[in-house]
Measured scan of single mutants.
Amino acid sequence: HSHMSHTQVIELERKFSHQKYLSAPERAHLAKNLKLTETQVKIWFQNRRYKTKRKQLSSEL
């Protein structure tokens, strides 16, 4: 499990705020920019979407 830097997370968050789903080319581009693997980016987005979904569910209770 590799640790992401604060800067990388900020960039991922910024991208996520604009779009929740990335196409393969977008993911490849973002990964390259942030010096991450595409898998890391993919998993981060999956986890981030899951967290957002959970938060929405709990706020509706």
Results as ranks from 00 to 15, higher is better:
residue 2 S to W: 12
residue 2 S to H: 11
residue 2 S to F: 15
residue 2 S to T: 11
residue 2 S to P: 09
residue 3 H to N: 09
residue 3 H to Y: 11
residue 4 M to E: 00
residue 4 M to W: 03
residue 5 S to I: 02
residue 6 H to M: 08
residue 6 H to N: 10
residue 7 T to P: 04
residue 7 T to W: 15
residue 7 T to A: 15
residue 7 T to L: 12
residue 7 T to S: 11
residue 8 Q to D: 02
residue 8 Q to S: 01
residue 9 V to T: 09
residue 9 V to R: 11
residue 10 I to K: 11
residue 10 I to D: 07
residue 11 E to L: 06
residue 12 L to Q: 01
residue 13 E to C: 15
residue 14 R to E: 04
residue 14 R to I: 03
residue 14 R to H: 12
residue 16 F to A: 03
residue 16 F to L: 01
residue 16 F to N: 04
residue 16 F to T: 01
residue 17 S to L: 08
residue 17 S to M: 11
residue 18 H to T: 11
residue 18 H to M: 09
residue 18 H to W: 04
residue 19 Q to T: 12
residue 20 K to W: 06
residue 20 K to A: 07
residue 20 K to Y: 05
residue 20 K to H: 09
residue 21 Y to K: 05
residue 21 Y to N: 01
residue 21 Y to H: 06
residue 21 Y to R: 04
residue 21 Y to M: 02
residue 22 L to A: 01
residue 22 L to N: 01
residue 22 L to W: 04
residue 23 S to H: 01
residue 23 S to M: 04
residue 24 A to Q: 10
residue 25 P to V: 13
residue 25 P to E: 13
residue 26 E to S: 03
residue 26 E to K: 04
residue 26 E to M: 04
residue 26 E to V: 03
residue 26 E to C: 05
residue 27 R to Q: 09
residue 27 R to L: 11
residue 27 R to M: 09
residue 28 A to C: 13
residue 28 A to H: 12
residue 29 H to I: 11
residue 29 H to A: 10
residue 29 H to E: 14
residue 29 H to F: 05
residue 29 H to V: 12
residue 29 H to D: 11
residue 29 H to L: 14
residue 30 L to F: 04
residue 31 A to L: 02
residue 31 A to K: 00
residue 31 A to R: 00
residue 31 A to I: 01
residue 32 K to P: 02
residue 33 N to G: 06
residue 33 N to D: 13
residue 33 N to P: 00
residue 33 N to R: 12
residue 33 N to L: 14
residue 34 L to T: 03
residue 34 L to P: 05
residue 34 L to Y: 00
residue 35 K to M: 11
residue 35 K to T: 04
residue 35 K to H: 09
residue 35 K to G: 15
residue 36 L to T: 04
residue 37 T to M: 03
residue 37 T to R: 02
residue 39 T to Y: 12
residue 39 T to W: 14
residue 39 T to G: 05
residue 40 Q to T: 06
residue 41 V to Y: 01
residue 41 V to G: 00
residue 41 V to E: 02
residue 41 V to D: 00
residue 42 K to L: 11
residue 42 K to M: 09
residue 42 K to H: 10
residue 42 K to Y: 06
residue 42 K to D: 05
residue 42 K to V: 05
residue 43 I to E: 09
residue 43 I to M: 10
residue 43 I to N: 07
residue 44 W to G: 00
residue 44 W to L: 02
residue 44 W to E: 00
residue 45 F to G: 00
residue 45 F to P: 00
residue 45 F to D: 00
residue 46 Q to F: 07
residue 46 Q to Y: 10
residue 46 Q to L: 05
residue 47 N to I: 14
residue 47 N to F: 12
residue 47 N to G: 05
residue 47 N to R: 15
residue 47 N to D: 07
residue 48 R to G: 04
residue 48 R to P: 01
residue 48 R to N: 04
residue 49 R to T: 02
residue 49 R to C: 08
residue 50 Y to A: 15
residue 50 Y to E: 07
residue 50 Y to L: 12
residue 51 K to T: 08
residue 51 K to F: 07
residue 51 K to M: 09
residue 52 T to F: 14
residue 53 K to I: 10
residue 53 K to V: 08
residue 54 R to D: 15
residue 54 R to A: 07
residue 54 R to S: 14
residue 54 R to Q: 13
residue 54 R to C: 15
residue 54 R to V: 10
residue 56 Q to T: 07
residue 56 Q to V: 06
residue 56 Q to M: 06
residue 57 L to N: 14
residue 57 L to W: 07
residue 57 L to V: 11
residue 57 L to R: 03
residue 58 S to W: 09
residue 58 S to I: 10
residue 58 S to Q: 13
residue 58 S to K: 12
residue 59 S to T: 10
residue 59 S to D: 10
residue 60 E to I: 10
residue 60 E to N: 06
residue 60 E to F: 09
residue 60 E to D: 11
residue 60 E to L: 15
residue 61 L to A: 12
residue 61 L to F: 08
